[in-house]
Write a protein that binds this DNA or RNA. Structure first.
Length: 275
DNA sequence: CTCGGAGCCTGTCTGC
DNA sequence: TGCAGACAGGCTCCGA
């Protein structure tokens, strides 16, 4: 489900609400999401203080002081901090897979309908760093320059849409934002990476940054599952120009938006505006 | 290296 | 109403 803007929004909420709190107990309700041996999580977390929460790529990193709990939310994962304001609908209790109880009675719930999410616990910093070493450039970091982007683009000959989804090249972009970025850059999702010229690469870079930043400012995109850590929906779905708009008029030229299956994922684009 | 397909899971929606 | 099939924000593994 969540792409970079959604994970970043969740991270911010968790950091504000949970930073510095002490873990009292944890409860594991579903086995298949835990990559690390369950017993380790049950043994090591209680009593520890949550230093802060970070994001790298689409993953959340709970820094517990020489201990890192890492979560990939995949399609339907969500972290919700329980409080009085939450409605029963937002809590979706039947999908709660993992609970962290803090000493001040705050509860952190990991909810995941499809249980495709993954939770890891790293005790060794080198091991954690090795895990993250496979991930590519952070698009909102200073490393994402036109030359560095051009370099990785020209090493491959795959379609630009597929490239944007490849987390070993550039991180955080998923199926929604890939379509949105390519539309705003007027580039066809099927165009091979090595055929992009300098002007297209620069436009693609600036639109990538623009779309992701704007989506973060709007707390992400909610279709059905995604919620912020306070249970609220995102807003960016109001600003989507192509995603989920099959047969609706292109906001630039008025011709119908197309949907095609590309590498087993839906791709939305305007045939007329994107070349 | 790239590709296509299956698989992991549970649910919603559409069409017959 | 029942049922089958397509599809869903992600990613990994396998064989070709």
């Amino acid at each position: 489900m969540p792409e970079l803007p959604e994970v970043e929004t969740i991270k911010k909420g968790l950091s504000i609400n949970l930073k510095g709190k002490q873990i009292a107990s944890v409860k594991l309700l579903r086995d298949n999401i835990f990559v690390t041996e369950k017993q380790k999580i049950l043994d090591l977390l209680p009593g520890k203080k949550l230093i802060d929460v970070h994001r790298r790529a689409k993953l959340l990193i709970f820094d517990i002081g020489k201990l890192w709990l890492v979560t990939h939310l995949r399609m339907s994962g969500a972290y919700i901090t329980a409080n009085d304001k939450l409605t029963a609908e937002n809590l979706k209790k039947q999908f709660t897979r993992f609970i962290v109880n803090f000493t001040d009675k705050t509860q952190l719930l990991y909810q995941d309908q499809r249980t495709l999410g993954k939770i890891y616990l790293f005790e060794d910093e080198n091991e954690k760093n090795r895990f993250f070493s496979k991930y590519g450039i952070e698009p909102l970091s200073n490393d994402f320059t036109t030359p560095s982007f051009k370099k990785i683009l020209y090493k491959r000959k795959i379609s630009i849409k597929q490239f944007l989804l490849d987390q070993t090249q550039i991180v955080g972009i998923g199926n929604i934002y890939a379509s949105e970025i390519l539309f705003r850059a007027n580039i066809s999702p099927f165009k091979p990476t090595n055929l992009l010229n300098d002007a297209e690469i620069e436009l693609l870079r600036t639109q990538t940054i623009e779309v992701l930043k704007s989506a973060i400012e709007n707390q992400g995109t909610t279709f059905s599952d995604y919620r912020q850590s306070n249970g609220e929906k995102g807003i960016f779905q109001k600003f989507l120009k192509v995603y989920n708009r099959e047969d609706m008029p292109c906001l630039t030229c008025g011709l119908p938006i197309k949907r095609m299956m590309q590498n087993q994922r839906s791709t939305y684009f305007c045939e007329h505006c994107q070349n």
